[in-house]
C-alpha cells in the first residue's frame, strides 16, 4: 500500500476531536497515536478504514479516531471485525481492545480469529488488569497479584500467553510492542496491517492507576535481539524462554488467508429452479 501524495493525511487528522476518558499517564494515549501514525504512514483513506472494539478502557479507541468504527459488546470485537472484513474485503479492518476483552470473555473468538486467518489486525493493549471496573485481575495478571478485592489472595491461576496461543492457533503475524515506544509500535501496526491474514500486536500499555508498578516497564522491556522467523517451530522455541518483555516481531507466516470470493454467477431465478416439481 503506497501513500498517494494527493491523499496524504497527517497522523493527527486520523484523530477525532473527542477527548479520551483515560487516566493521565495511561499507556493507551500513546497506542492511539501509534495507530493513527500507522494509518498516516500507509496513507489509508479514512473512509476505507474501520476500527472495531469491544468493551474496556482501550476499547474506547474507535471514538478517538476519525475513521469508521464500531464500539460493540464486551469480547466480540474480533467476531464483528471478521463479519465486516469478509463482507467488505476491500476495507482495512483493525480490531482493538484490552487483555480482559480479548483473552477472557473474548478468548474463544481470539482462538478462532487466529485460526480463520482473515486479513484483520488486532491491537491488544495489555495492562494485566481490568481498569474500567476498577482493578480486577485479568487473564494476563500474574497469579500472585493480591491487590484486587475480588481475588485477595491472588488468582493462583497461570497467566494467558497471547503470543503462544496466537501462534498455535494459526495467526500469520505476531509481534509485541511497548507503549513507551510509540514509533516502534506504529511500525509494528503498519507492518501488521500490510501483512496478509490475522495479525496480533500485543502492546504492553501500563495502567498507572491500578498497576502503578507497571511504570517500571520502561526499564524492563527490551527489543528482541533475534530477528523474526517464518518458522512456527522456531517461533515456539523462542516463546519458551520469553519473559513477556521482549519486543519486536516474533513471527511472519504465510498461512492461507480466509476470504471467500464474492463473485456472482447466478440469479435468484436460477437458484429457485431447483424447487420446481
Amino acid at each position: 500500500m503506497e501513500a498517494s501524495a494527493a491523499r496524504a493525511i497527517p497522523a493527527k487528522d486520523y484523530k477525532s476531536d473527542y477527548k479520551p476518558v483515560w487516566c493521565p499517564g495511561c499507556g493507551d494515549f500513546s497506542v492511539l497515536s501509534s495507530i493513527t501514525k500507522a494509518f498516516a504512514e500507509l496513507g489509508l483513506p479514512r473512509e476505507e478504514t474501520a476500527v472495531i472494539s469491544g468493551i474496556g478502557c482501550s476499547s474506547r479507541i474507535p471514538a478517538y479516531t476519525s475513521v469508521y468504527g464500531f464500539h460493540g459488546v464486551h469480547g466480540r470485537a474480533l467476531a464483528l471485525a471478521t463479519g465486516l472484513k469478509v463482507a467488505r474485503p476491500e476495507l482495512t479492518v483493525v480490531a482493538t481492545g484490552g487483555d480482559g476483552d480479548g483473552f477472557s470473555i473474548g478468548g474463544n473468538h481470539f482462538l478462532h480469529a487466529a485460526r480463520r486467518n482473515a486479513d484483520i489486525t488486532y491491537v491488544v493493549m495489555d495492562n494485566q488488569v481490568y481498569g474500567m471496573t476498577k482493578g480486577q485481575a485479568s487473564p494476563t495478571t500474574s497469579p500472585d497479584w493480591e491487590k484486587s478485592k475480588l481475588t485477595p489472595h491472588g488468582t493462583g491461576v497461570s497467566p494467558f500467553q497471547p503470543l503462544a496461543i496466537a501462534l498455535a492457533s494459526g495467526a500469520n503475524y505476531i509481534a509485541r510492542g511497548f507503549s513507551g515506544d510509540p514509533n516502534g509500535v506504529a511500525r509494528l501496526i503498519a507492518e501488521a496491517i500490510q501483512h496478509p491474514g490475522f495479525s496480533l500486536v500485543q502492546v504492553l500499555s501500563p495502567c498507572v492507576t491500578f498497576r502503578p508498578e507497571q511504570r517500571d516497564w520502561k526499564e524492563i522491556t527490551r527489543e528482541a535481539t533475534v530477528p523474526y522467523t517464518d518458522d512456527t517451530g522456531r517461533a515456539a522455541r523462542r516463546l519458551m524462554t520469553d519473559d513477556g518483555f521482549n519486543t519486536g516481531v516474533l513471527f511472519k507466516g504465510n498461512r492461507p488467508i480466509y476470504q471467500p470470493s464474492l463473485e456472482q454467477s447466478s440469479t435468484t431465478e436460477d437458484l429457485e429452479r431447483a424447487f420446481q416439481v
Binding site: A50, F70, A79, G83, L84, V86, R88, H109
Partner: peptide, 13 residues
C-alpha cells in the same frame, strides 16, 4: 455469540 456479532459487522459494512 460470534455469528450474531459477525452479521452486525457485515451489516455495518
Amino acid at each position: 455469540l460470534a455469528s450474531v456479532n459477525m452479521i452486525i459487522g457485515g451489516s455495518f459494512g
